[in-house]
Nucleic acid binder design. Sequence first.
DNA 1: CTTGGACCCTATAGTCACTACAGACTCAAG
DNA 2: CTTGAGTCTGTAGTGACTATAGGGTCCAAG
Lengths: 151, 151
Amino acid sequence: MARASRFPTDVPIGVLAGQSGVKIETIRWYEKIGVMPKPPRSAGGYRLYSAEHLKRLTFIRRGRELGFSLDELRELIRLVDGHAFTCAQVKALMLEHVADIRRKIADLQRLARVMKDISSRCAGNDVPECPIIDALFAQQPLSPTIKHLGP
Amino acid sequence: MARASRFPTDVPIGVLAGQSGVKIETIRWYEKIGVMPKPPRSAGGYRLYSAEHLKRLTFIRRGRELGFSLDELRELIRLVDGHAFTCAQVKALMLEHVADIRRKIADLQRLARVMKDISSRCAGNDVPECPIIDALFAQQPLSPTIKHLGP
DNA sequence: CTTGGACCCTATAGTCACTACAGACTCAAG
DNA sequence: CTTGAGTCTGTAGTGACTATAGGGTCCAAG
């Protein structure tokens, strides 16, 4: 056994995908755009991942689940990797995000209210006239413009 | 004057953009993907829009503001144009959407709660250790998986 | 040793709903 | 006729992937 690896976790991409819950294609994508480092390769060109890679990938997945963009995660990773961050910096980033999310929630709530409103004017019967359609065609706005609803 | 237009509203794209609040590029895009009809052109190739176009574009804009996808709007337009819809159909579509939005709101609220939670474990001081970062690295999940957070 | 099949590779194109250019053309006013 | 604002087409970029095609690799069973 020539390859007695100190860490027994030199795994191919499919196993990393299983361990991390991130799809194979997505892992390759992360490598391509530089949020995951290029791993070493087997003789035949297979990517071989270690426990470090799993940690990094988990970090990214968690961050994505919390709504951070990959750009923001790149920034976070830079800070973490360089050990050049303070708790305060990280907390500030986090709270900024919470504020963003709260704005999105408020927008969606407005949206839901408007739609319920419009719907309630509609009897929902079999005739081919509908106040909902009318409302969509009307020239006067339905509600104050809703922002922050991009991705 | 051969072209005495019955409706005085044969306007170029910039004016339609102004009237509708939809950007020029977006209007051309809508034409390309077939949600707006191809308008007639001037001798020199300029698009000329009538009041009908403004109505259609307004419809699309409202629908977008309410979170309908262009695919869904295509469907709605098909129904409306063919006069082959009933109020009940439209209302059902609308309420389905409200339900979608409510799900999104719930997800975002869970998200905000988790983030507040994590943040509260962080003193926000100047040290380079941070429970937030630790939480991102941890292997056990932060919260039940959050779905519906695609666009 | 060979073979089968699961796994992996790259490169490319598609998704959604736009946005942003470059370079050429048109239109209306002066 | 000139000027400058407006418009044209076509292409490429965004974010965060997903999907496909057409191959190569790995390894265990026979």
